[in-house]
């Protein structure tokens, strides 16, 4: 039976297994990452979701670039806002291209969060993209 302690042990075991393997086989250092994620529900004309996940150091770099001329300090709240806006804009662009011009699309308000693993719904496909020196994972599920 899965418990909270088991979940913590799984992550530790995964990290240790990955770290040892890369260190011994490729002499590489492994570091754990936190992911910032944003998710938008697609309400019509079909049900679905679009999510974006980015490692914390990359969303921080992007946010700092966006806010470079502002007095705003880039903190967790700002980074979550940035990823929410990215998710919202990508979802709108995706549905416009997927459905074609002149079609109706309704989106929900973005949800955001921070996790030490990539969170996705069953059946969601994940598409990795290299963005400058970082990467993003775009997940979609259309029912």
């Amino acid at each position: 039976m899965q418990t909270e302690n088991n979940c913590h042990d799984i992550r530790t075991s995964i990290f240790n297994a990955t770290s040892r393997t890369f260190e011994d086989m490729t002499f590489s250092k492994v570091e754990g990452l936190k992911f910032y994620w944003g998710c938008v529900t697609i309400k019509s004309p079909c049900n679905g979701k679009l999510s974006i996940s980015m490692p914390d150091h990359f969303i921080k770099e992007i946010s700092q670039n966006m806010y470079s001329l502002e007095d705003t300090k880039v903190n967790e709240k700002v980074m979550l806002d940035v990823i929410a806006e990215l998710a919202n804009t990508i979802a709108g662009q995706f549905m416009g291209l997927h459905l074609g011009e002149g079609q109706i699309c309704e989106l929900g308000l973005p949800e955001t969060g921070i996790s030490d693993s990539v969170v996705y719904d069953e059946g969601m496909k994940l598409y990795p993209f290299k963005v400058d020196n970082g990467f993003v994972l775009i997940g979609t599920i259309i029912k």
């Binding site: 919202n88 804009t89 979802a91 709108g92 662009q93 549905m95 416009g96 459905l99 011009e101 002149g102 079609q103 109706i104 699309c105 309704e106 989106l107």
Partner: peptide, 9 residues
């Protein structure tokens, strides 16, 4: 300014 397309809207 809208993120989603909707000609009727």
């Amino acid at each position: 300014i809208s993120s989603a397309g909707n000609p009727a809207l």
